[in-house]
């Protein structure tokens, strides 16, 4: 059995089936490892913690990059595609990142992390909490101390600006 014609059936959390070419599916190190000792023509791999919407996105990513590599797509084109691919709502973005981490797709994880990191930049503590739905759990004392830490930093940068 050549790998070329092999199909991998990925089953999402909500039981939706996705038929994916072997080369595309094995961009996930996790799936590549699962398939290592299996030789059937069609193998079903359950992905229990990724829902259909997110799995579809992940497969879209893998499929594009698999093709891009095959036809030697230019760096700029890939970058542009990646950028567009990441234009999703925050919830989907986070889910893609988690799925990439679970499926062990290094490039996608990297892309997701860079995108989220870009969102953190220029945000205040409060805005980050909102973005990640996190409640601050510091005591008032700790908060005050941290504010002080921050003030030093901002005063210093002001001074630097003045010096320039």
């Amino acid at each position: 059995m050549t790998e070329k014609g092999r199909i991998v059936k990925m089953v999402s959390q909500d039981q939706e089936e996705f038929e994916v070419e072997y080369g595309v599916a094995t961009m996930s190190t996790l799936i590549a490892n699962v398939l290592q000792d299996v030789s059937e023509e069609t193998t079903t791999v359950p992905i229990p913690n990724v829902n259909a919407q997110v799995l579809a996105k992940v497969i879209e990513y893998c499929r594009y990059h698999y093709e891009a590599k095959r036809i030697d797509q230019s760096e700029e084109d890939i970058e542009r595609w990646n950028k567009d691919f990441m234009k999703v709502d925050n919830k989907t973005l986070f889910n893609i990142l988690i799925a990439a981490s679970f499926l062990d797709i290094a490039d996608l994880l990297d892309l997701g992390c860079k995108t989220v990191a870009g969102m953190i930049k220029d945000k205040s503590v409060e805005q980050i909490r909102e973005l990640f739905c996190i409640e601050g759990d510091f005591t008032e004392e700790q908060e005050a101390k941290m504010r002080e830490e921050n003030n030093w930093g901002s005063e210093m940068s002001q001074e630097n600006n003045a010096a320039q």
Partner: peptide, 15 residues
Amino acid sequence: ELGAPELQTCSQVCS
């Protein structure tokens, strides 16, 4: 992926 100022901010989000 973050620089020093962003990490500093992140360290104030929660424990």
